[in-house]
């Protein structure tokens, strides 16, 4: 095989694995958007809060990574419930921009609290998967990317099962489709909203853990970066389409890795946003979306 093809394939594998991570972020945004028809800009901050909180037992008691992982998820869920309570529950209906603004307010509150408590210094994160690359035939693979792949497949399967095989999933899809009709048929919209927040925030915990592990530290810039990627993936796939988020995430991952390898890292983000802009204009509904903008 020629080197170009070989390199291209290696980046394709890496891109697909890292794309799973993007798909997780996009999936979280999409589930929230699908059910609430609202946009939660504080989601990136929820992820970051979990990632930072996971470090507390490690720094205090030198706890093992599993404790860190569980703490991350638990704290993310708590923060998610706080966001729901402060930004959505008491909001009057029929105002599109108000929830955008309340979540921006929440984003500022969470981010600044973290910056204040940590003096804006990145905190070192443990590397539970080692940093030795695994050899798979001619290709080198990072172990943490492999872990991301496994965890994403498990998470996606769980979410698909929940959405399409359980009563709660059916209620969620009903609320996403027609909230008022679902309410009349006896589905508690508020209940579904809260449970959706619990679900997506648990996902946020997983995302936060891997986001911090893959760069080796928890940093305050995380939130903005995660929000940017999440939005791009969500729009690429089509707003509110969960399978779309997976496709969008994988596409973005592959695209970025190939771009870094062949064009250089300074083009990575420009390319991502240029593609986003083009997709929006040519196919406003996203790759798998059916709803028109």
């Amino acid at each position: 095989m020629s080197t170009v093809l070989l390199d291209g394939t290696e980046q394709l594998i890496n891109g697909l694995m890292y794309g799973c991570f993007y798909a997780l972020i996009g999936g979280g945004f999409t589930l929230l958007f699908g059910v609430l028809r609202r946009f939660n800009l504080a989601y990136g901050s929820t992820i970051m809060a979990g990632a930072y909180a996971g470090l507390i037992p490690v720094y205090l008691f030198n706890a093992p990574v599993l404790v860190l992982f569980v703490t991350t998820i638990v704290v993310s869920v708590l923060v998610g419930l706080l966001v729901e309570f402060c930004c959505f529950r008491f909001l009057r209906k029929g105002h599109e921009l108000a929830p955008l603004m309340t979540t921006i307010g929440m984003l500022i509150v969470i981010d600044e609290t973290i910056v204040y408590l940590t003096d804006a210094v990145g905190l070192k994160y443990p590397a539970p998967f080692g940093d030795e690359s695994l050899a798979l035939g001619p290709f080198l693979i990072r172990p943490d990317y492999l872990a991301i792949l496994v965890v994403s497949v498990v998470s996606f399967s769980a979410i698909f099962y929940l959405l399409y095989r359980t009563r709660f999933g059916r209620a969620m899809r009903a609320v996403a489709e027609r909230p008022d009709a679902a309410q009349i048929l006896g589905v508690s919209v508020r209940h579904v909203n809260v449970l959706t927040f619990v679900l997506t925030s648990a996902l946020a915990g997983i995302i936060g853990f891997f986001a911090a592990v893959s760069v080796g530290s928890a940093r305050p810039e995380m939130a903005a970066w995660l929000t940017g990627k999440g939005l791009v993936v969500m729009v690429l796939g089509g707003l509110g389409s969960f399978p779309g988020a997976i496709v969008g995430g994988l596409a973005l991952g592959v695209l970025e890795f190939e771009a870094v390898w062949f064009l250089g890292s300074s083009y990575r983000d420009i390319l991502a946003f240029a593609i986003l802009f083009l997709v929006l204009i040519v196919r406003p509904g996203g790759l798998l979306g059916t709803r028109t903008a």
């Binding site: 008491f90 909001l91 105002h95 309340t102 921006i104 307010g105 500022i108 509150v109 981010d111 204040y116």
Partner: peptide, 22 residues
């Protein structure tokens, strides 16, 4: 007020939106 400043800023935005959504 250092840390509390942004906190108040964010909280004020949330409260304003709750009472005056436009």
């Amino acid at each position: 007020l250092h840390g509390a400043r942004e906190f108040i800023y964010g909280a004020l935005i949330i409260l304003t939106m709750l009472f005056r959504p436009r």
